[in-house]
Amino acid sequence: MNGTFGTLISAAELADQADANWRLFDCRFDLRNRRYGRDAYASGHLPGAVYLDLEEDLSGPLSGLNGRHPLPDPQLLAAKLGSLGVTTGTQVVAYDDAGGMFAARLWWLLRWLGHPTVALLDGGIQAWASSGRALSQDVPALTARVFSPRLQPALHVDATYVHGHLDDPALCLIDARAPDRFRGENETLDPVGGHIPGAINRFFRDNLGPDGLFKPAAQLQEEFGTLIKGGDAHRVIHQCGSGVTACHNILAMEVAGLTDSRLYAGSWSEWCADPARPVATGPG
């Protein structure tokens, strides 16, 4: 297969490639059952895929004030990926079984490390299996390589930045959580319900069609264009509960051609850990 993939790749496109230098990562996870992803991987995964754990591999240590899934140390993450065969130019494909909910985190992290050749498998493992393609229980033996990150700090902001721009009319803060949690209802993951004042809600699952695939680029462009009122995508800051599903909205905007929006990685779980920060409830 010629060319590279930087946003989405279909099951058919992935099946067509025969490049041994590609690296596939299984990112399945369950916030309420931390063994789920590893057990699911052991039961069957895409041939050649290696498992990466959201909390052990794709997040950093918790301090109690930095959210539920803080960003990992970039050098440690780069070393981990290098040990699994990723190097400059390697085409990486991430997948899960939750519409890209967790795989999008790896997609964003690699871009943060300066590695643009990373794509999310559209439709996840279901799209692969439903087309009759085989799964494997083999754990591949991969040759370690050197992965030197080229960190892109401009891709994310911190709580101080968000707090300092709450009154800036140019800021567009998009919350990817489910509408009830955004309103402050049915909060089961974080100790405080509500949202950051001024945020607007775009549930990440609204990026998907009934078939579980991402909506067409033109449709996403129209929907996000309406949401940001034609504003500069670079002024869009994405957040969610802990900086995971917000990456799904960033990916959807990239698919739509609305590039360079940014992530507030600490998100609501970090924001609400400080009682001095303001909280809003209701529809926004």
Rank of each mutant, 00 (worst) to 15 (best):
F29E: 01
E222T: 15
P278Q: 06
T87H: 13
L166K: 09
Y36M: 05
T226N: 15
E13M: 02
R277W: 11
R38S: 13
G282T: 14
L166V: 05
G132V: 04
V118R: 08
C272K: 11
I228D: 03
A94W: 06
A154V: 03
F25E: 06
P275F: 12
H195S: 08
C240Y: 08
N66Y: 07
L76Y: 02
C272V: 15
A265W: 07
G212I: 06
G85A: 01
Q91F: 05
A20N: 08
L220C: 07
D97W: 11
T90M: 00
Q137N: 14
W271P: 10
T143H: 04
R111P: 09
L120T: 07
L65Y: 07
L77S: 02
D167M: 00
A265H: 13
D206H: 14
E185K: 13
L220I: 11
R68K: 15
I200P: 00
L120W: 04
G44Q: 14
A217E: 08
G132H: 12
W128F: 13
S10Y: 10
L24D: 07
D26G: 07
E187M: 08
S63N: 05
S261A: 08
G99I: 05
R277C: 03
N21W: 04
Q239T: 07
Q221F: 11
D211Y: 11
A273H: 09
L76E: 09
T90I: 01
L189Q: 13
S261Y: 09
D73V: 00
P283T: 12
T4A: 02
R133N: 09
G194Y: 12
R32P: 13
L220V: 10
D190H: 10
Q219I: 02
A217P: 15
Q219D: 03
A154H: 14
V118C: 07
F214I: 00
G212W: 15
R183C: 12
N186L: 12
C272Y: 10
R35A: 14
R145C: 02
I228G: 04
E254D: 15
Q239A: 01
S10K: 06
S63A: 03
L213W: 10
S261G: 11
G48Q: 13
V279M: 04
F147H: 06
T188K: 14
L52A: 00
H234L: 01
L54V: 09
A144F: 10
Y95K: 09
P61E: 02
D19W: 06
A252S: 13
G209Y: 09
G212T: 10
I9A: 04
A15S: 09
H69D: 02
G282V: 13
D39N: 08
R133S: 02
W271V: 02
D232F: 08
A199N: 12
P283V: 07
R145N: 01
N186R: 15
V157L: 00
L208K: 11
R183Q: 12
G99Y: 10
L227Q: 08
V92N: 11
D274S: 12
G123A: 03
E185P: 10
P47C: 01
Y264I: 01
G6P: 02
L213K: 14
R262G: 03
D16S: 11
A94S: 15
R34G: 11
G48Y: 14
Q152D: 11
P61F: 04
L84T: 05
R150K: 07
A12Y: 07
C247Q: 05
L14P: 14
L227G: 06
I250W: 03
G44L: 08
A20H: 11
E13T: 03
S267C: 02
L220A: 04
V92M: 05
D138Y: 07
W107Y: 08
D175C: 06
L258V: 05
